[in-house]
Write a protein that binds this DNA or RNA. Structure first.
Lengths: 206, 206
DNA sequence: TTCCGCATTATACTAAGGTATAATAGACAG
DNA sequence: CTGTCTATTATACCTTAGTATAATGCGGAA
């Protein structure tokens, strides 16, 4: 099976810049999708794509930083490489604080851009990998009944069946049944594995 | 008991800036320690202090970014707020990538500075808190004998005593003894707790 | 050499966990 | 109304884990 070529989304309102950057990226083997505005990008991009976003800071209407906020609020994990023509430190700092992958100045050096893109795509790859694992775990959690979920939370804190039964106002055997179903549904064979799984998706202790 | 007042280290080669910033910080209730150079700061600062560092980017000899690297390599977790008089985007981006808490431009607004300092100190507080917990766990780990440590690693992956014994070429009873000592030394009463502890200091699965 | 820490093994018992089977009962959807 | 899902409880049995006690052997430090 062929690994799909990562896609670099380029958003810049100035056509010559779009063309120039697209050419460089394409020559380096990346799939490129260019947009003249943030709105256009939002309307057409597929958030599930492996890749990154090369984004101009200053644009009419929605600017780069605003698009970054919108994407973040939408749960996007697409790494963003900003491009700017002006030397605005506060903007660069804000972008980086908000998780930008990089922030480059125009005119951008081809090698710098490509390096930043490669780093960003690697980040995206690893974040997506983690997300995949996480959603797999969440899917299993979703199959638990409310009571099973409750028992799970006691189990991963190390409570004994006896104690759990006491806290839930039931008897040990009931807990055992729930517990067995939890292990089955979460597809683990030991408490240790169960704790590892639940730790990853932030299931707190009781 | 009184909470010790957090200390803000100020490093700037220009005395008027040092004085002005120190005054603002002092008026806001922070303890302030000012230095005219990175070297001076390195020689005199106590890395265990709760606080943060307000650091000028451009200085003769060691500049701010170089000091950041030195501190990072030395394992410092003191948050850094950079101050710069020049609009150098790449430097601000580098600083932020390397974990700077903030990056402000001169002349700096008093409120901006104080806000950044407060955020930085809160970061420091929480990082230090985590470090304290971590070193406590490591201290316990250090009391384990090599064999106990080995058994620990099997236990937290969910292996049965029988399996552990097989892998270690010994018998179940031996494993039980080691296991009991591990639980005792790590001060936990369940496998779940043990997994939680070891997860925090990156003990990998077998 | 002697003492101590470490690793080992054994016996014996208690407690806890895991599995199988079965039955009851309420809630809710078709 | 009937069947399914969920939660519950019970009995019985087997497997693991935990604990106590004791003893052996080895190697390094005093």
């Amino acid at each position: 099976m062929t690994t799909p070529s990562p896609t670099v989304f380029v958003v810049d309102d100035y056509a010559p810049v779009r063309r120039s950057i697209s050419r460089v990226l394409h020559a380096a083997g990346f799939a490129v999708a260019a947009f003249a505005s943030a709105e256009e990008f939002l309307a057409q991009c597929d958030p599930r794509t492996l890749g990154c976003l090369v984004l101009d800071v200053a644009m009419p209407a929605l600017n780069g930083l605003e698009l970054q906020d919108i994407l973040a609020k939408a749960g996007s994990v697409l790494p963003i490489i900003f491009l700017t023509g002006t030397a605005d430190i506060p903007k660069s700092v804000q972008a980086m604080k908000h998780g930008a992958s990089d922030f480059l100045t125009k005119p951008v050096n081809d090698e710098d851009l490509l390096a930043a893109v490669r780093v960003a795509i690697e980040k995206n790859r690893s974040v997506r990998q983690q997300q995949t694992e996480l959603s797999e775990i969440r899917a299993r959690l979703a199959t638990l009944t409310p009571r099973e979920r409750e028992v799970l939370e006691y189990v991963v804190t190390g409570k004994l069946n006896k104690q759990i039964a006491g806290d839930l106002g039931t008897v040990e055997q009931t807990v055992k049944v729930h517990r067995a179903r939890v292990m089955q549904k979460m597809r683990v064979r030991s408490v240790a594995e169960l704790v590892r799984l639940t730790q990853r998706c932030g299931i707190s202790a009781r």
